[in-house]
Amino acid sequence: MAVLAHAEAGEIAARLRNLALPAHQDLREPESGLVMLRGRVGGDGAPFNLGEATVSRAAVRLASGEVGFGYTLGRDGEKARLIALCDALAQSQDFGASVERDVIAPLREQLVAERKRAAAETAATKVDFYTMVRGEG
């Protein structure tokens, strides 16, 4: 589900349109709220409260009974609902494979490509130290 949290709602919706979706209903209407984000003292010590982030959540139930949950940073409730739907579909016998193949896998590929591009641009700013010849002797 990490892949979906990184995607845009529109991208998930577009991928889902390729699936013949089963009947489903909102178990929890999308809602927005806050999550307090925590860091650690020194990066690896005791936790402390850094500041909050907006988060949206939703839950969806398929007619066949599977329940999916959707959580994401931001105030896009529709995105949370789409993630919940994918989560429910991923658990279903009939749709598990196709939601992975047609929705999650292509979005993962896109995310990996984007990260690779960013990593390559970052890598070009890495310092290559060289030592000048010392004037000894």
Binding site: L34, R38, R40, A119
Partner: peptide, 20 residues
């Protein structure tokens, strides 16, 4: 104006995708 759902797991800055 927003309700708080809870608190996150502490973030791991050691696993940061470093840009600088």
């Amino acid at each position: 104006t927003l309700p708080r759902f809870g608190t996150s797991e502490p973030v791991n800055t050691g696993a940061m995708r470093v840009q600088r």
